[in-house]
Design a protein around this nucleic acid. Structure first.
Length: 436
RNA sequence: UCCGGGUUGGGGUAGUGGUUAUCCUUCAGCCUUGUGGAGGCUGAGACGCGGGUUCGAUUCUCGCACCCGGACCCA
């Protein structure tokens, strides 16, 4: 007997059925916004991550040398791949480009609640629009996905921040600040002691007093963004604040503003984000990890060798992620197990008739099972029960002597005889009730 | 990489340095060779892996693997 790899998960049919519903719901939402489906490789040149991404990502790569001596990696995220695709066909694609896909990703990291080494994400991205409407549409898609899954606004929250606000605010201090390090410090704010947090900020170049002032501004800004523009007379800062306000205004018109809280201390770890960034959290706090996140990355396409192209997107973890935890906590986990429309029960040498009936029922789009194990009558009834069959069609030698089959409703247990020539007949979904 | 807690049939569990390892459930078959959800009977099926201590280890001990949770990091 073999064991599967740590951090990889087998999904059995009764586990996959609700996950399928979750994925279908999110994908239907994406389609409704006009996102078009793409499919992308599992394996990519490792350089796509080692060249641009920070140490953190590289440490988690599932990478190796292939037989041609190429340094390749299983993809840990989608963004560089879609960036590559956009660059390759940039001139041919009409803008805005709106793509979605659901597929696995791999990260070699420590396994814990909601975090595995193989995870599935539905990504949705918009390329070619820097308008606030594009940011807001991504927020709206994400929010609609959650509400379509049965969550309401009191059960999740989007913490929305803006990289340029943080950057410009830092720049407005009269100091030589390492912006990236400072933003990383902000990202840690909730996790470390005040003193350590302020220490990280001063490591980044702020004086102690400036660090205090900076932090006060972030907190004040969450309630009232004008506190920021009042502080510094900076055109760039004003533009960033205005951009965030415009995104929130668009979100208001799109009907999702109520899910969004301004939270300037939400920074997100990835370095390529540029404007609006957001993370989704469980409003009840029961799921402590972030559910998913996204944001704007206006420079990545250019960095990948394309023409300057603004971009904004979100990646929602659907399997081996925290979203199932969120849905379970709020009683929104799809309950449907496997079910079967018809079981065609065979007694004796009746395969040709049973097959004809099965085929005609399947042609009508139903889920139909019949015996492939040579089981006894009782054994087949047992099996029909175990697969939650709604109707059992008994094709037995005894009935066929009278040119009949028996239609049995499994819920009530009632049954009746029907001429074999009239089943399934003209009805799309013939059941016991129609013949009773 | 670090810190806790775990690992006994498919699932859930009891127990023990020494005969055939407990119970529930599940699965298969039968009671009932044409009727599932109830009951009865029969059967299948387990001490994570490796080393050490010991006459003897599932039990004690060490290492490893895996699982659960946490730190770090992230989605």
């Amino acid at each position: 007997m073999y064991e599967g790899l740590k951090g990889f998960t087998d999904f059995y049919p009764d586990e996959m059925a609700p996950l399928r519903e979750v994925i279908d719901t999110i994908e239907d939402t994406a389609r409704a916004y006009g996102f078009r489906e793409t499919s992308t490789p599992a394996l990519e040149p490792a350089e796509m991550w080692t060249d641009k991404s920070g140490e953190d990502i590289v440490d988690e790569l599932y990478d190796f040398e292939d037989r041609g001596g190429r340094h390749v990696t299983l993809t840990p995220e989608l963004t560089p791949t879609v960036a590559r695709m956009v660059v390759a066909k940039q001139q041919a694609l009409s803008k805005p480009i709106k793509w979605f896909s659901t597929r696995p990703f791999w990260r070699y990291e420590q396994v814990q609640q909601g975090r595995y080494r193989e995870l599935y994400q539905t990504n949705a991205d918009i390329f070619g629009s820097s308008e606030p409407d594009a940011d807001a549409e991504v927020l709206a898609f994400a929010a609609d996905s959650l509400t379509n899954l049965g969550l309401d606004g009191s059960e999740f929250e989007f913490r929305v921040s803006h990289r340029d606000i943080l950057g410009e605010l830092l720049r407005s201090f009269d100091a030589d600040v390492d912006t990236t390090a400072a933003i990383r410090a902000v990202d840690k704010r909730a996790k470390v002691e005040d003193e350590e947090y302020l220490g990280l900020l001063s490591d980044a170049g702020l004086s102690y007093d400036q660090a205090r002032e900076f932090d006060d501004l972030l907190v004040a800004g969450d309630d009232d963004l004008s506190a920021l523009t009042d502080f510094a007379d900076s055109e760039e800062l004003a533009a960033a604040v205005e951009n965030l306000e415009n995104v929130l205004a668009a979100a208001e018109d799109f009907g999702v503003r109520q899910y969004c809280d301004v939270s300037l201390t939400t920074a997100r770890g990835l370095d390529y984000y540029t404007g609006v960034v957001f993370e989704c959290f469980d409003a009840s706090g029961e799921v402590s990890r972030s559910i998913f996140g996204g944001g704007r990355y206006d420079h990545l396409i250019e960095e990948f060798g394309g023409q300057s192209t603004p971009a904004v997107g979100v990646g929602i973890g659907v399997m081996n992620s925290t979203l199932p935890l969120l849905l379970q906590v709020h009683d929104a986990w799809p309950g449907e197990g496997i079910s079967t429309d018809y079981y065609v029960l065979q007694v004796g040498d009746v395969r040709s008739v049973a097959s004809r009936i099965s085929r005609e029922l399947r042609e009508r789009g139903h889920v139909v099972e019949t015996d492939v194990s040579g089981r006894s009558f009782g054994g087949q009834m047992n099996y029909a029960d175990s697969i939650d069959a709604e109707t059992v069609v008994i094709v037995g030698e005894r009935d066929l002597e009278n040119d009949e089959v028996t239609i049995k409703d499994m819920k009530s247990g009632e049954q009746t005889n029907v001429p074999v020539d009239e089943f399934p007949g003209e009805s799309d979904r013939p059941t016991y009730d129609e013949f009773a």
